[in-house]
Structures are given as C-alpha cells and as structure tokens.
Amino acid sequence: MNQATAIVALMKRDLRAFLRSRSQLYSSVLFPLMLLAILGTGVSDGLDPKHIRDYVTFLTPGMIAMTAVFSSTFSSASYYQDRDSGVLKVLLASPHSPRVILLGKTLSAVVIGAVQALLVLAVAAAIPAIHFRWQYGVAWSLLAAVFAIVVLNLFLSGLGQLLASKIRTMQGFHLVMNLVLFPFLFFSGAFFPLTDLPVWLKVLGRLNPLSYGVDMMHLALYANGDGGYFGLPMDLAVLTALAVAVFYFGTSRSVSPDR
C-alpha cells in the first residue's frame, strides 16, 4: 500500500478544509498586518524606541513568527475535530500505520502554517513603510527567511502533536497552547530586542526555541550588517535540531481515536 499516496491524500484533505474556511484564511493574514499597523505605528510614534531604528520593520519577523504559532495551533486542533467526528477511527482502520496518518496531518499543518507566514511576508514586503534590508542579498535573505518559516512550522506542528497526545479536549489544548506559546512569543525578541533585557529574561530568551527563528528572520529581513543576537550558525543549528526532534517525536506518538 503506497504510504506517500495516503500522506498526500490526507494533506490535500486538510488543505482543502483550510482553503474553504475563508475566515481562517483571511484572519491569519489580516491579524498580523493589523498588529503591524497598530502596534508598529503606535510604538514608533508614541514611545519612540531609542534602540530600534525602524520598529515596524523590526516587528515584521515577529508577526511572521506569530502567524506560524497561531496557524500551527489551529492546524493541530484538527486532530480533535477528526477524533470527535469519528473520521480518525476510519483513517486508523485503513491499511496504514497510525504514524502515516499523523505524518499526513502534521505535514499539512506545516504547509498551511508556512503558506500563511509567507503570505504575511509577501504582503509586508509590498508595504512602503516596511523596509527590508536583505543583508545577504534578496535571494539568500529570502531563502533564509523561508527556511526559518518552514523549520519553525515543523517545530510548532510537532509540538502541537506532542501536546495533543497529552490533552484530552480541544478546549484544554487551546488553553495550554496559548499558555505555552504566548510567553514564548513575548520573550523571543519578536516585540522587543533581547539585548537590553534583564538577565533572567535573557536566560528565558536563550531557552526559547522561537527566539532562534525570530533571530534568523531578523537577520534575513531587518538587520543591516550586524550578526544578530545568536548568530546565523547558532540559529540554523538549534532550530533545525529542535524542529527535527520535536517533529519526529510528535509524529511518533500513540494515537487513539477514543481519547
């Protein structure tokens, strides 16, 4: 039985469901852009941050990371919808291992998350008030940003599956994802640089997987001549290792249609 065919079929199904849900599609792009406009302009004009030369552009990588966070949360929750609608047990009664089913669902979450984040990046690039520096040249910088987006989504979708294996209800899942991921987002360097933070927050920032993704996107899109908070080699190494490990364990979890 061709596993790749099954995985692609599952991905197509989830992607189709995402495209049909227009409200999710539009809000996933509009919400970060709205935050960019309101928060970016508000902080730039109202607070006049001393250390950030162009806050709206600085904020953009953070908004892209936030898009990935929200998207992976929503997509991972589709596991609960499949369980509650009874579709999961039908899939598990097919001639494929639970791992193939989970792989199809998780990969579709990665694709949806990455597409949403790339849409935000594309729209942001077209806004005159946002000035990407592309310090490695447009092609390489873009490649680095896309890589960061994809790997970040791999990590977040794997994390979503790991949490879904422990949490019984969708409501509980959303609660825990918000509880875990919002703090991650706040001390990731998405909204303010990690450089000037107190030591304890810097430590948390260093332990935070999102920080490496945001740093890599800052390097690709915002930085101009500096080496970033962690540096590109460190970002690449940590992000890739964590994403691969978490995705692997997330898709290896046991699946029961009854819980």
Binding site: R13, S85, G86, V87, K89, A93
Partner: peptide, 13 residues
C-alpha cells in the same frame, strides 16, 4: 471494511 456504530463522516467534506 468497517461501518462504525457512531457517525464517522467529516461534515466539511
């Protein structure tokens, strides 16, 4: 083949 006791259709498909 299997027909389950509870409904098992995706309402969005």
């Amino acid at each position: 083949g299997m027909v389950f006791q509870e409904p098992s259709l995706d309402p969005q498909m």
